Every structure is written in structure tokens, then in C-alpha cells.
Amino acid sequence: MLFYWIVSYFIGTFLTAWWIGKWKKTDLTKMRSGNLGARNAGAVLGKTAFLLTFLGDALKGVLILYIGFHYHFTIEIIAIGGVLGIVGHMFPLWLQFKGGKGIATFIGVALVINPLLFAIMAVCFVMIIALLRSATLSMLIAFSAYAILCWIIPAFSHLWPLSLAILLILYRHRLDVIESWGKRWWKSTK
């Protein structure tokens, strides 16, 4: 079990954006946000880089769960493995703990570990984005709903470790939220 968690962290440290940047001879850590995630890769290198990064980062979350299911670990142990994969993505040891923000890896983990709860989160996202017209805010609210449901609905209680990953994701997106709300306020005052 401990070995599984260590392996999960190190799988998480495989940052697709970093490898795509190397392939394109671009250091994404020095471009735009400096973030090694799909959004920054797409902004700097285009839609294909976004898609490849998103898929690569999501699939590593799926791989972590597959390993846990293969060894018949409990859902809580597998969920902790998923969280450690997300932590590895956000804080990779080999890049001085400067990675991505964890969204794609979380989506890979959440989709596989409980498709129903993932679907609820996706519907929440779609409804909120229709109201707020902000992908960042809508995503953060939908993720928060996911975390809350892990704690208040008994059928999802075994997924409680994922709420810890969501707290980290919210923390990593705090400046994006402030910027988004600031822009909305500025437009409303004009």
C-alpha cells in the first residue's frame, strides 16, 4: 500500500506539458503563467499541445487508479493514490515542486473512480458556466460541490480523500479567481 502511494506520487510527476515543451523546444516554465498544465501549453503552443497535455495528464490519473484496482486495494486507498498523483503533478520533486494546477489529473481520477459523482460535477459546471460565463469560476464551484458531496452523501463518503486534492486545486487557482472577479467588477463599473 505504501509503495502504491509512492508510485502514485511519482506517476503524477510526469508532466506532459514539460515533455511537449521539450519536444517543441519551448520552456513553458518561462512562458505566460509558467504553469506546466494544459491551459498554459495551449496558450503558448496551440490547441494540439492543449489536447495532448490534457489527455496525458488525465491518463496518468487513470493509470494510478488502474494500478490500485489491479491490486484490489480499497476505494479509499485508491483515492489516496489519486490524490498523491495530483500532488505529484502540482509539486513535482524533480522540478523544484513547480508543476501544474491539477485539473486534468483530477478529472482523470474523478471520472474513473466514480462516474456518477463526476457526472454530477460536470452538470454543475455546465449550469454555472451558463450563469457566470467564467470557466475558471464555474470549474472551481463545481469542484467544491464535488468535495462537499464526498462529505455529506454516504454513498460518496469513501471518496473523502479527493476533497483534499480539491482544496489544493482551489489554493493553486486562488489568483485566477481574484483576477476573474476583478475583471468582472471592472467591467461592471464602466
Rank of each mutant, 00 (worst) to 15 (best):
I6D: 08
V7D: 10
I11N: 08
G12N: 03
T13W: 08
T13E: 12
W18N: 11
K22N: 11
K24E: 12
T26Q: 13
D27S: 08
L28H: 05
M31K: 15
M31P: 02
G34S: 10
R39L: 15
N40R: 01
A43Y: 12
V44M: 01
V44R: 01
A49T: 07
F50T: 00
T53D: 11
G56N: 03
K60N: 10
V62W: 05
L63G: 00
I64A: 08
G68A: 02
T74S: 15
T74Q: 11
I75V: 14
I80D: 01
G85Q: 05
G88L: 02
F91N: 00
L93K: 07
L95V: 04
Q96D: 13
F97T: 04
G99F: 03
K101L: 12
I107R: 10
G108F: 00
M127W: 09
A130P: 00
L131R: 10
L132H: 03
R133G: 03
S134N: 04
T136R: 00
M139V: 03
Y146G: 07
C150G: 04
I153N: 05
I153D: 08
P161S: 08
S163H: 06
L168Y: 07
I169F: 09
Y171F: 14
R172Y: 09
R174D: 10
D176P: 00
S180K: 12
K183M: 13
K187Y: 13
